[in-house]
Write a protein that binds this DNA or RNA. Structure first.
Ligand SMILES: [Mn+2]
Ligand SMILES: [Mn+2]
Ligand SMILES: [Zn+2]
Ligand SMILES: [Zn+2]
Lengths: 143, 143
DNA sequence: TCCTTATTGAAAAATATTATCAATAAGGAA
DNA sequence: TTCCTTATTGATAATATTTTTCAATAAGGA
C-alpha cells in the first residue's frame, strides 16, 4: 500500500513536504539521515523545512514504509522498506543497502537462545555488511 | 585481557577517568549512553568530564572491550563485551542486555544471501529483543 | 623526587533534535 | 469553482548532543 492510501486511511493529508521526503527516499540507494534528506530537498529545489523531514520520517516509520538501517560506526539512516519481514545488507564501500528475506533461517537459533536464557524472544534485528558486486569489481582494478 | 593491560600494551595511561567509565560499565546491566555514564559518575562522586566519557568510550570500543547495542526506537548504548564473537539479547521491559554466542547458526543464511545478491558478506549485526525471566514474572502478577 | 608528555576537563563551537506558533494549503462541502 | 475548516508547514527559538580547543594536571618512567 502506498503513502497516499495510508494517509487517506488515517485521515491525514497528502502534502507537498510528505511527497518530497517520500520521493527522495524512493530515489535513494543508501540509508539517509534527516539532514541528508533535507540537503537533497534543497538540491531538488523543493523547499521544505527540516522540521517536516523529521515529522515525515516519524510518520513513514509508523506506516512501516521505511526502516532504520544502522551503520558500522555512524548511527542509522532511513531506507524505503517493502512490505513484510525482511532485513538489510549494506555495502561497506558505497553504502548501498539492499533487502533480503530472512526466511526461517533464524528459528533454530531463536529456540536455542530462548532455552538457554529463559528470555521470551519477540523480535530481532539483523543486518549484514559486505561488498556489493560493483564495489568488488572496483577493488580488482586496483590489484 | 583487561583494560590495564590493553592500555600498557598501547603505551597509554591507566587514568582515573578511564577507570571510572570502565567500572560504571562493569556495574551496569543495561546499555548506557555517554550522558547516562556521565550521570552515574556524578552519583558516584567520581568527578570526570563528559568529554572524557566520550573519549574513553571511543577507546574501549577500539579495544573491543565494549559494544554498541541498538534500542528499538531510541538509538544505541554501550555495554561491556566479553572477548570473541557474540550478540546481545535485550529485554523490552527492563532493558537488561545479556550476551549470547551465535554459533554457526547463520552460516546457512549467509551463504544463501551471498549467492542471491552477489554481495561478499563480511560481517553482521544481530540482536534479539524480548522479555527477560524476571519481567515475565512481573507480567503474570498483573493477570 | 623530578621530568616529560599523554590526558584531562572547562569552555566554546558545532551539530542535531524538539518545541512553539502564526501563516499556509489540503481537501471536503457547498 | 469557491469557500471553510483545520491539519500541516516552516521560521524561529529552545534543548540536547557531540566535537574542538587549549592551558592545567597527573601518570608513570627515569
Ligand atoms: Mn543507532
Ligand atoms: Mn528476520
Ligand atoms: Zn558497494
Ligand atoms: Zn527485563
Amino acid at each position: 500500500m502506498n503513502l497516499q492510501k495510508k494517509l487517506n486511511q488515517a485521515g491525514l493529508r497528502h502534502t507537498h513536504a510528505r511527497q518530497v521526503v517520500m520521493s527522495i527516499l524512493e530515489e535513494a540507494t543508501i540509508p539517509l539521515s534527516p539532514q541528508s534528506i533535507y540537503q537533497r530537498s534543497l538540491e531538488k529545489n523543493e523547499d521544505i523545512g527540516l522540521v517536516s523531514v523529521y515529522r515525515t520520517l516519524e510518520l513513514l516509520d509508523e506506516f512501516s514504509l521505511i526502516r532504520r538501517v544502522h551503520g558500522r560506526e555512524d548511527c542509522h539512516g532511513y531506507v524505503l522498506a517493502s512490505p513484510g519481514h525482511h532485513h538489510h545488507l549494506v555495502c561497506r564501500e558505497c553504502e548501498k543497502a539492499v533487502e533480503f528475506t530472512g526466511g526461517d533461517d533464524l528459528s533454530g537459533l531463536l529456540n536455542r537462545i530462548q532455552q538457554e536464557t529463559g528470555f521470551e524472544v519477540e523480535g530481532h534485528l539483523l543486518q549484514l555488511f559486505g561488498l556489493c558486486p560493483e564495489c568488488q569489481k572496483g577493488k580488482e582494478n586496483h590489484a
